[in-house]
Design a protein around this nucleic acid. Structure first.
Lengths: 337, 337
DNA sequence: TTGTATGCGTTATCAG
DNA sequence: CTGATAACGCATACAA
């Protein structure tokens, strides 16, 4: 009773041929009710289940997709990954995860996924290849869906409208009378960061305000603390009265400094967070924030990859999702107004 | 140039047999330098790479392990998963993730992993089977390493010493003069929660203090907010002066209420957090906390599963890791002392 | 030292 | 409608 039963065992037990077993189980071709009955019974009795690997080898379908991302520990990515996993499982697929923070590793992983004959790949690499043709993703036959990266329009992609989100947040703060608004976001080298900066600048321009690079803190890593930068900003003769910040290290670090200075939120200083509900809940008071709908993004990503797997043809699709500005208690009128 | 090359193509190109190609590539058996040379050249030229699936089918080694966990979005689990992924990749293995929050799904996933012939399984199920023999993990031939769960001593396991950690935290607060200390942790039904409660009670007993169940809030989910409970506690004639709380929703919710009451941390109220450094960084002031060393836990888990894969024999090993109590700025002497 | 042949567990294509 | 049998791509025991 140690080894698993194979088709042959089932065939023997049912007194039929292996072909018939396969036909019954896959509902391919016809089988008489009597034969069908005997096969099913033998299957039941032996607890037979077709071996996934052998089936994969034969059919060429691995029923597995890969997810390439920089770092699973990043809360926003973990949330997204979590949803993707749920949805892929629901669709009868498995999820192989691979983390990479270097182009060389990106290449390795893609080659690896390819070698394992995955059916598709969801990718959110840590490096945004300036020349799309140079990216490992354009050299593979694997269907690829790009998440939150700009790798040209040769790929299906799902992105948040970061620029639009920032315009919303800025509009809100500007309406409250703020004129010096700091921006702390990570990823100067990636689309989410770049686009946020663009939205920020556009909102300033639309309001006829100058752009002050000194108010922007944009390190590469999401783990970076913004304490020093915030401290310097508050030393200025005309310090910012509001901040828009990514809701993990960026936001908390800044918050510590603001409060350490004796400033009270939202009376003396206003804050708009950016992130998942879960992360932002940790703030006190509950932040007014651009809420990242990772649930929706994951849903679109899985939909796109499944569509692409089902029928490879068709032009690339680019889905852009809006941000929700959720009003909390961390913003007030600009001081002295 | 569409399809991939197979051993046969390589053999043909090199003018040798498929057996020789395989032998050269796997360094099994001998091959003359000349033949070796020709094979390698053909491999290079065709960009040949042995198909993983076919190799798996033939050798029986899938070089893949599974990770079963309740929810990837839980920051502590995501951090652990992230480390496990890094380490398994480094060991030449892939990681298949599956999330499950119900016993039925646990069973499905185990069956699925088994069917895919994974070589091992790291499991941290959401349900702690009271009768170990009834768990899906005891019915599988797969090597299993259990993380943060008590599923009996038939499995390799890696656990944190939750009771010991809580004794440390309690000792610290008791030394500061606190006598009414609240405890907010999740998972009454799982080892981490149960053990924390045990440590809490042991510390009380050792100090000759009575156990007040009213001071303990222990919901099942880590997402639960503790606001209402905290609010009620502060209404009591003799409210708690300190709190030990899990560093996500539990902690932040309580903190909101404490501050909403006009109490200042750590002057009027002391707090010890429990969680990862990243999560606890979000607090202000930086919390004194039991820091979860997920890096170490992941390392041990991967080590155990790899050992078990290499040689299945040997008695189960149980590794228990200590907590670090990191002193921050969220604790002070008990008020009125 | 190298080539040949068999089988891993399936599915699919044939005859019958 | 059903039963042999080939083939997926590889590794390996055995023969040469």
């Amino acid at each position: 009773m140690s080894d698993r039963a194979s088709v042959r065992d089932v065939a023997a037990a049912a007194g039929v041929s292996v072909g018939s077993v396969s036909r019954v189980l896959n509902a391919s071709g016809y089988a008489s009710p009597a034969l069908r009955q005997r096969v099913l019974q033998a299957v039941e009795q032996l607890g037979y289940e077709p071996d996934f690997t052998a089936r994969h080898l034969r059919t060429g379908r691995s029923r597995t997709i890969g997810y390439l991302l920089p770092n699973i520990a990043n809360p926003a990515l973990a949330a997204h990954l979590s949803e993707v996993e749920r949805l892929t499982q629901a669709a009868g697929y498995s999820l192989l995860v691979g983390s990479s923070e270097r182009p060389a590793r990106d290449r390795e992983l893609v080659a690896f996924f390819e070698n394992r004959r995955l059916e598709g790949l969801i990718a959110s690499p840590s490096f945004e290849y300036p020349d799309p043709a140079e990216s490992p993703f354009s050299k593979t036959a694997l269907p690829v869906v790009v998440v939150e990266r700009d790798l040209g329009d040769a790929f299906d992609s799902v992105l948040m409208d970061h620029a639009g989100g920032l315009r919303q947040a800025m509009h809100y703060l500007l309406t409250l009378g703020h004129r010096r608004i700091a921006l702390f976001v990570s990823g100067a080298n990636l689309a989410p960061g770049r686009e946020k900066l663009r939205g920020y600048r556009e909102a300033l321009a639309a309001a006829g305000l100058p752009f002050d690079p000194g108010l922007v803190f944009m390190p590469e890593s999401w783990l970076e603390s913004s304490r020093d930068c915030m401290a310097r900003l508050l030393e200025r003769p005309a310090p910012p009265t509001a901040l828009i910040a990514l809701g993990t290290q960026m936001l908390s670090g800044a918050l510590h400094v603001v409060r350490g200075k004796g400033l009270e939120v939202p009376r003396d200083f206003s804050i708009v967070g950016i992130g998942t509900t879960e992360t932002l809940e940790l703030m006190y008071p509950p932040a007014t924030a651009l809420r990242y709908d990772y649930h929706r993004s994951a849903q679109v990503a899985v939909q796109l990859i499944m569509d692409r797997i089902a029928r490879a043809a068709g032009p690339p699709r680019r889905v852009i999702l809006d941000w929700d500005l959720v009003i909390g208690g961390s913003c007030g009128p600009a001081p002295g107004r």
